[in-house]
Structures are given as structure tokens and as C-alpha cells.
């Protein structure tokens, strides 16, 4: 078990080192997320619709779109220098590669979100300070499900000719539960409700996370084969 954990850690560490050296992924994801928010703010009239009604939706669209940028990069980068080949030749379990990539995707996205939430607070004039705890839980659960399924599909789409196009086409219909659930929960939290009032959504998102992490572990062997 310890050996497995250190394998996962090594893959995450490798991704972080690459990111520290180049700094291209984080900055592009963050700027893109802000741009998505901006476009949405221009396309709706905030003086007519309340910020609390549209804000959560726009926040999550920005997160999911920016996250797709990161996912597209995740396995393409590995392919470029034959790094994936090296990873697969290494005596590690395939699921360790999956977990490593998933955790690095998840942490990049979470770091991006910690910078994005203050921007969201300023743009939409909402007070997130008083509901920070439940909000962070919701953001974490949603991002986990997105990264879990996203990493699996990214490993798959990186081998296709049209990878940048196919990843969102495959991923977006499948993450409908995450999109709806996270937006609903974020909206209710900003309205001052507690997590206990929305246990059905919490259960649904947790089910999503658990089901797709397990499916990924079971099927990753077939995707990372040659």
C-alpha cells in the first residue's frame, strides 16, 4: 500500500514540477475562467436578474470550461515526449497512473478555484465569506467528480486525431449531474441554507464521484494498454 501511494505521489509530483517550470497551464486556465465569466456578464443584464440567481451557474460554467482546458493538456503533454510510454513501462499499476493524473488535475483545478472564488465574489457582489465552509465542500465534491470522469476520458481522447474536440463532446453530457447539482447547491448555499437542507444533492454528487472513480479504476487497464 505504501509503495502504491508513493507511486501515485511521484506522478503528482512530476506534474507539479512540470507546471512550476512552465507555468503555462495554471495561468491559461485562470485567465480563461475569468474571460468566460466576463462573456456571461456581458450577455446578461445583471440589473434585471439577481446575481444570486445567475452567479452560481456562471461560476460553474467557468470552472468546467477551464477544467476542460486542463484535462486536454493532461494526457497530451504525456504523449508529446513519449512520457506516457515511460509511465507504462514503469513497474506501476495502471490505476496508480490514473490516480496520479486525477489528483494532479484535481489539485490544479482546486488551486485555480481558490483564486477564482474571490474574483467571483467581487464581480457578482455576493458574500461568500459567511458560507465559506459548505461552499468549499460543494466545490470540492463537484470538482472531484469532474476530474474523476475527466481524467478517464482525457486518457482516452488523447489517442484520437481530434482530441481537443472529442473530449468536451464526450465529457459534457456525462457531467450533467455534476453541473446541475453543483449549481443548485452553490445557489442554495449563497441563499443562506445549510448543507443539511440539500442532502439529496450531496448524496447524488457523492454517488457520481464514487461510481466514476470505481469505473475508472476498472477500465483504465483497457485504455492504457499499448
Amino acid at each position: 500500500m505504501n509503495a502504491y501511494l508513493s507511486q501515485v505521489k511521484a506522478i503528482v509530483w512530476k506534474d507539479f514540477v512540470t507546471e512550476f517550470k512552465t507555468r503555462e497551464l495554471f495561468s491559461s486556465m485562470f485567465v480563461f475562467a475569468i474571460l468566460v465569466m466576463l462573456i456571461f456578464i456581458f450577455s446578461i443584464n445583471l440589473s434585471v436578474v439577481g446575481a444570486n440567481q445567475v452567479g452560481p451557474g456562471i461560476l460553474w460554467v467557468a470552472i468546467l470550461f477551464a477544467g476542460t482546458l486542463g484535462l486536454n493538456r493532461s494526457f497530451t503533454l504525456e504523449k508529446e515526449n513519449g512520457c506516457l510510454q515511460g509511465l507504462m513501462l514503469a513497474p506501476v499499476d495502471r490505476s496508480a497512473i490514473y490516480f496520479g493524473k486525477m489528483l494532479s488535475n484535481l489539485s490544479f483545478l482546486l488551486i485555480m478555484e481558490t483564486f477564482l472564488l474571490p474574483v467571483f465574489m467581487i464581480f457578482f457582489n455576493v458574500d461568500i465569506g459567511s458560507h465559506l465552509g459548505p461552499l468549499l465542500i460543494v466545490v470540492f465534491m463537484g470538482t472531484l467528480g469532474f476530474s474523476a470522469l475527466g481524467t478517464l476520458l482525457s486518457s482516452l481522447s488523447s489517442n484520437l486525431k481530434t482530441r481537443e474536440i472529442m473530449l468536451p463532446i464526450l465529457l459534457y453530457p456525462l457531467i450533467v449531474p455534476i453541473a446541475i447539482g453543483s449549481v443548485r447547491m452553490t445557489g442554495q448555499i449563497l441563499d443562506g441554507k445549510s448543507l443539511a437542507d440539500m442532502m439529496n444533492w450531496v448524496g447524488l454528487i457523492l454517488c457520481f464521484d464514487i461510481i466514476f472513480i470505481s469505473v475508472s479504476i476498472m477500465t483504465i487497464d483497457h485504455i492504457l494498454e499499448e
Binding site: 478517464l152 482516452l156 489517442n159 456525462l174 449531474p177 446541475i180 447539482g181 439529496n200 485504455i223
Partner: peptide
Amino acid sequence: AKYAAVIGIVGFLDIPLIHFSVLWW
């Protein structure tokens, strides 16, 4: 065939989750 099979499995398992999420929507 392998890639398609993975999507075939993931897609079907997603149906109940999608159903409940849009139902509560």
C-alpha cells in the same frame, strides 16, 4: 472497440444520476 466499450459502460451508469438530477431540477 475498447474506447467505445468504456463510453458504453460510463454512459449507461450515468443514466440514473442524470435522471435524478434533472428530476430534482
